[in-house]
Each structure stands twice: as structure tokens, then as C-alpha cells.
Amino acid sequence: MVNFLSYTCIVVGLVFWYWGTWPLLGQRSVLYKLHGLSVADTLGSMAIIVGLLLRIPQEWPLLVLALISLAIWNTVLGYVLAYCSTEDRGYDG
């Protein structure tokens, strides 16, 4: 049962990876691709690590730390990339 759940999580994560990374090859704007990457790299990788956590519960401290750092760093990197890649149009005069 746990094995099945863990495989489900990993497969869901892989589907997220492929779905979110695929738009990188297209000709959309950087920000649009960033939405896809936030699905793939943050949520997909988190699903994969939860899958691993179910398989190998004795390593939980490391995996929980991995989950936390994944969520925080990827999100903040998304924000930094969005901030840096757009021009400051200077609304605030």
C-alpha cells in the first residue's frame, strides 16, 4: 500500500516535470514559462520527494529539509527572475 502511494507520488511528480518543462521549448514570454517551471520544479519535485519519504521514512529529517529548501528557494528564484527579467517601467516616478 505504501509502495503504491509512493509510486503514485513519484509518477505525479514526473508528469508535472514533463508538463511544466515542455513549454520551455516554445516561443512564449519568460514569465509564461516561469509559471510552468513553478509547477514542474517546485510542485513536481516536492511530489517526488514526498514519494521518497514514503519509501524511506527513517531518513525523514533530511527529506523534510529538502522539501523546505525546495519550496523556499525555487519560489524566491522565480520572484528574482521575474523581477530581473522585466524592465522597471517606473510607475512610481
Binding site: 514569465l31 509559471h35 513553478s38 509547477v39 517546485t42 519560489t75 524566491v76 520572484y79 521575474a82 522585466t86
Partner: peptide
């Protein structure tokens, strides 16, 4: 930014 539909671009 964590939710995939929205990304903060800039904070004023």
C-alpha cells in the same frame, strides 16, 4: 509566487 498561477513581479 508559490501558487503556480500567480508570480509577484515587483514590490513597490
Amino acid at each position: 509566487t508559490f501558487t503556480p498561477k500567480t508570480i509577484v513581479q515587483r514590490y513597490r
